[in-house]
Each structure stands twice: as structure tokens, then as C-alpha cells.
């Protein structure tokens, strides 16, 4: 099998979203080559869970998020959401399904229509889907705006550029909530915000999740941020999954060499601890010609011959903890004991 394994998938009635063998490729001009953005990943998310997706720029996080939304449809693989196979839905059926799953993005200001008033922007999905009476729509929009900390009166009078970056992210969140979705995919929602606003937005997401019973996929490159908000984390590298684990376990007991690199790159706000050492040299290679075997092998300090020829499959190293590595830093659990 060419994929990176499915040992980590759960067999539970609470699975809200399950993606299997997801592949997304983009052609490179007319060269006949292709960008291997996502290369056969499998993931599931339980109802009410927050799944974190981490990895360096270009490793396929956003592409995975968009492929779940079928924007565009993946090259191959399966995406089952609330029991229906999204890859087989017609355009209309998919538009309907997208009301149940929403996406928010990194750049809050440019993801909002600059010419509309903010209250209109938040109202728009309700108008398109003709939900409720005018009065009901108004009431819903105002209560959600209050909820995210935006004054509805000001929202009715002002355009996005009159709000700060953090406020625009709150507005995007409000808009994503009006149709009562069950899943929200947050693509680097705090990467462009400063640390204090980042903390406000992360706390807000936690509160809204509890209040609206949401399920979240949270994409970021900073593992400290991802750990704070997620129940479970999947680490991606060059279109593949390296490791899946409960957030606390991933930090306490990282099993993949790349996870350790990500952990060691986070700046420590303490001059006594902050030893200056570069965690890793260079950058990921091009996804047009990914290295054979384990895709991390050219940068891995522990790489052996087998890593250059054979692709590691995900296998269990602990309770809910899975790693795709021939020589993980945590000893794999024997199959017989599972």
C-alpha cells in the first residue's frame, strides 16, 4: 500500500469526519510534472474534538483543509462527513453540505469583503440560505456579534478596514457561526496576530466551541499554540502524516524526529533556558520531486539506508499515539499486545 497507514483511525459512532487516502496533486504548468501537495493521508475527528494540524509552510495543511471542503475536489481518496461521502456529492449537494462546515483563514482583513458593512458580511450566509425572518436574522447576527466581542451598532456602520486585525478575525469567526455548522476548519487563524490578541482569539474559540458544541480542525505551524487548543494533534511533513497523538502526549513523549524539531524550534520566553541552537538546517525539499522512502530522510539526524527506500507506515507507540518512522524515539507497541 502506498499510503502512510490507517492504524490511527478510530471505530466510533462519534466520528464526525473521516478522511482516507486523501491525495491532492496540482499540475506544474505543461511540464507533465505535478506538485504532490497531499500524498495519501488518513485522519478522523470525533464530535466535539479539536484536531490540531501542524507542520512547516508548504507541507499541505491548507490543501488538506480545502480538500475536506472539496475546494477543489481531491485527486483521490474519501472524505466522509456526517455520514455522507463528500467526494461523490453533486455541486448543489456540496454547497448545502458546506453550510455544516466552515473555514476561517489567516489573513482576517482580506478574507472579508472590503466594500460591505461588517454586520452585512456576517448576515450574508443567512440571506443566501433564506434562514428565518428578517427579525430572526437580525437577532441572530447581533447576538453572535456580541458573543465574539464586536459591538453590533458599530458593525452596522463600519467596513472591515475600520477594525483591527484581531477584531477582523472575530468578525470572520462570527460569520462562520451564523449557519450553525458542526465543523470549523481554522487555517492559521492566529498566525498574523500579536501575542496578546492571539491569546484573546484562542480563548474565544475555546468558549464558542463549548457553547455551540463545535468540532474544530486547527491548523498552525506553532506547536505551542496548537497544543493549547487541541485534544489531538497530527504532525505533517511534505504531504504525509508523521505522528498522531493526544496533545499532552505529543509534547511529553514525541516519537518522530520531525516532531522533536518542531518542539525545539519554539522560542522559549526565558533567557536562562533559551540556548541558541538551530533545531534544523535547510528547508523541506520540493513537493514536485519528494524524496523516496521516508520524505523526511534528507534532513533527519537518525536516517539509515532503509529510510531512503522504504516508506514507514503509521503504527502504535502508545494509547492513541501513532508514528510513521522506522526508528522512532519511542518504542512501538507489539501488535500482539494491542
Amino acid at each position: 500500500m502506498a499510503g502512510t497507514g490507517k492504524a490511527h483511525l478510530r471505530d466510533s459512532p462519534d466520528v464526525l469526519l473521516r478522511i482516507e487516502d486523501l491525495v491532492v496533486e496540482f499540475p506544474v504548468g505543461r511540464t507533465g510534472l505535478k506538485v504532490n501537495a497531499v500524498s495519501g493521508i488518513s485522519l478522523d475527528v470525533l464530535r466535539g474534538e479539536t484536531l490540531g494540524l501542524v507542520g512547516e509552510s508548504g507541507c499541505g495543511k491548507s490543501t488538506t483543509g480545502r480538500a475536506i471542503m472539496q475546494l477543489p475536489r481531491p485527486t483521490s481518496g474519501s472524505v466522509v462527513f456526517e455520514g455522507s461521502e463528500l467526494t461523490r456529492l453533486t455541486g448543489d449537494e456540496m454547497r448545502e453540505a458546506r453550510t455544516r462546515m466552515q473555514m476561517i483563514f489567516q489573513d482576517p482583513i482580506s478574507s472579508l469583503n472590503p466594500r460591505r458593512k461588517v454586520r452585512q458580511i456576517v448576515m450574508e450566509p443567512l440571506n443566501i440560505w433564506k434562514r428565518g425572518t428578517d427579525a430572526e436574522r437580525s437577532q441572530k447576527v447581533d447576538s453572535i456579534l456580541e458573543e465574539v466581542g464586536i459591538d453590533p451598532t458599530r458593525a452596522a456602520e463600519s467596513q472591515p478596514h475600520q477594525f483591527s486585525g484581531g477584531q477582523c478575525q472575530r468578525i470572520s469567526i462570527a460569520r462562520s457561526l451564523v449557519l450553525d455548522p458542526s465543523l470549523i476548519i481554522c487555517d492559521e487563524p492566529v498566525s498574523a496576530l500579536d501575542v496578546s490578541v492571539q491569546a484573546q482569539v484562542l480563548n474565544l474559540l475555546e468558549d464558542l466551541k463549548a457553547e455551540y458544541g463545535l468540532t474544530l480542525i486547527f491548523i498552525a505551524h506553532d506547536l505551542a499554540v496548537v497544543k493549547n487548543i487541541s485534544d489531538r494533534v497530527a504532525v505533517m511533513y511534505l504531504g504525509k502524516i508523521c505522528e498522531v497523538a493526544p496533545s499532552d502526549v505529543l509534547y511529553e513523549n514525541p516519537a518522530h524526529h520531525y516532531t522533536s524539531v518542531l518542539l525545539n524550534s519554539i522560542p522559549v520566553p526565558d533567557p536562562e533556558v533559551a540556548v541558541t541552537k538551530t533545531a534544523i538546517e535547510g528547508e523541506p525539499p520540493s513537493p514536485v520531486l519528494p524524496p523516496p522512502g521516508c520524505r523526511f530522510n534528507p534532513r533527519c539526524p537518525a536516517a539509515q539506508d532503509i529510510c531512503r527506500t522504504e516508506e514507514p507506515q503509521l503504527r502504535a507507540v502508545g494509547d492513541g499515539h501513532f508514528v510513521a518512522c522506522h526508528f522512532p524515539t519511542v518504542t512501538p507497541v507489539e501488535l500482539s499486545t494491542r
Binding site: 483591527s164 484581531g166 491569546a199 484562542l202 475555546e206 505551542a224 497544543k227 493549547n228 499532552d248 520566553p269
Partner: peptide, 24 residues
């Protein structure tokens, strides 16, 4: 102090409430 406390710490357990600075 408030700026420092608003940074998420790796060693804190997940879902630890962040001490955000209220307002702007």
C-alpha cells in the same frame, strides 16, 4: 508581565486558559 503571560507555554497542559490582556 501581561505580555509574557499571554504566550502559550509548551509545558502547560492543553486547554490551559491563556491570560489574555483584555481590551486594546
Amino acid at each position: 508581565e501581561a505580555l509574557l503571560n499571554s504566550i502559550p507555554r509548551l509545558e502547560d497542559r492543553s486547554h490551559t486558559r491563556l491570560s489574555a490582556i483584555a481590551g486594546r
